[in-house]
Write a protein that binds this DNA or RNA. Structure first.
Lengths: 215, 215
DNA sequence: TGCAAAATGTGACTAATGTTACTTTAACTC
DNA sequence: GAGTTAAAGTAACATTAGTCACATTTTGCA
């Protein structure tokens, strides 16, 4: 594991030391749910390794993707909710084996006034998540499913650092709140343009995929 | 105008006094744009009177509604962006004559460590806006236009404290990123159910409107 | 090897929304 | 009160997405 100061270069050394002394490091296997809708949150959550997925669950159990969290990032929901012991409105799940740090709430409050770098880190976290949500809203409000699918694939590849996507069409449909047939059809169309290749449970993005397509 | 401590009961007296001494009160006429997409934000914005509308502008100038801000609330975008002098990703506009307070950034940073109540107020603001965005996402992702329209009308009536909505169908269509004909059709349907009555430039919500309909 | 389960493919159909091209109505101005 | 303009109504049509009912393929494993 990388040392903390490389993972969180924005944070000042004294703070990092306090973090190390007071927070709990936890290794989470892939596909484990960390926070459920309605659950009360008792500590803030920083990602050290791996990738977390933030999503909204719909009535049928579909997992509508909001965004991914990468190492060095913090779960904004936990930052906001923890300090008021509020119930979460979203689900958090590990998409691969991940390492997280759990920071007790009381400390967060202290740090806020004690460490400028913590204050800025929290603000930055909010800003980034806000922008992420704005981007999502833009997509579902203004774009068609084909563009949303492309955006989704790009993001997934980026979050998983691989051009190979191991998901069934059904899973993708869930995350976009669409249906399998629609996703299959659209994928096929993109395959015909030679931007990716399809096989059971895998989508291989070709180099061309990142070109000619809008973001 | 109501005294500040009634408008912002969460904030401690000493802080309110600092606010009064240091921030600029500004009266804004109706339909004036306060912040544009891409604009750099130099001060945080608190609503004292009136209603502000936060929206995203699309390519054709359509004003896609995100949410309204009411007295006692702060513009989260300005809180986040101001401290980093970042460009706004959204537009802010007064929907009626409004009074706002503009707080210089440097003070915000100080207050954060000086006044616990400010810290909590800011967190609460983030939490509320986050939830607002989540609600919006739920609607555009999971609901059809008819439900979104109803939700929109309810919100509008609430923000304007009146059952009479003075908007053209075109304006509503813009805010929902739909088209006039669609909105006209749907409104007509709701009118047939006797939940509202239509006339040129006005929609009158009847009492029944708030019943039998889902949120 | 051959079967079962899961994943994917396909075509026909429906529903929702958006578009086009008008007409009609209401309100305002001169 | 005639003419002008903005708003609203309307019908036919196009497009997108979702659904249904299967057929086909892949893969693991009995």
């Amino acid at each position: 594991m990388q040392p903390l100061y490389k993972m969180f270069p924005q944070l000042e050394p004294a703070l990092l030391q306090e973090i190390e002394e007071n927070s709990v490091l936890k290794t989470i296997p892939a596909d484990e749910i960390l926070i459920r809708t309605g659950q009360y949150i008792k500590s803030a959550l920083l990602v050290v390794e791996g990738t977390l997925k933030i999503f909204r669950e719909n009535e049928d159990g579909g997992e509508f993707l909001m965004y991914y969290l990468q190492p060095g990032e913090a779960c904004a929901i936990s930052l906001v909710c923890a300090s008021k012991m509020e119930a979460s409105k979203v689900m958090v799940k590990s998409v691969e084996e991940s390492v997280i740090m759990m920071v007790p709430i009381q400390l967060m409050d202290q740090w806020m006034s004690k460490y400028k770098s913590w204050y800025y880190y929290v603000l930055e976290t909010y800003r980034n998540r806000f922008e992420e949500l704005l981007l999502l809203i833009d997509h579902i409000a203004f774009r068609n499913m084909d563009e949303r699918l492309i955006f989704y694939l790009k993001r997934y590849a980026q979050a998983h650092k691989s051009n190979q996507i191991n998901l069934s069409h059904q899973q993708i449909a869930d995350e976009l709140n669409s249906s399998r047939e629609v996703i299959s059809r659209l994928l096929k169309k993109i395959e015909q343009k030679k931007l990716l290749s399809l096989s059971r449970n895998t989508i291989e993005l070709k180099d061309d995929f990142y070109k000619n397509l809008m973001s």
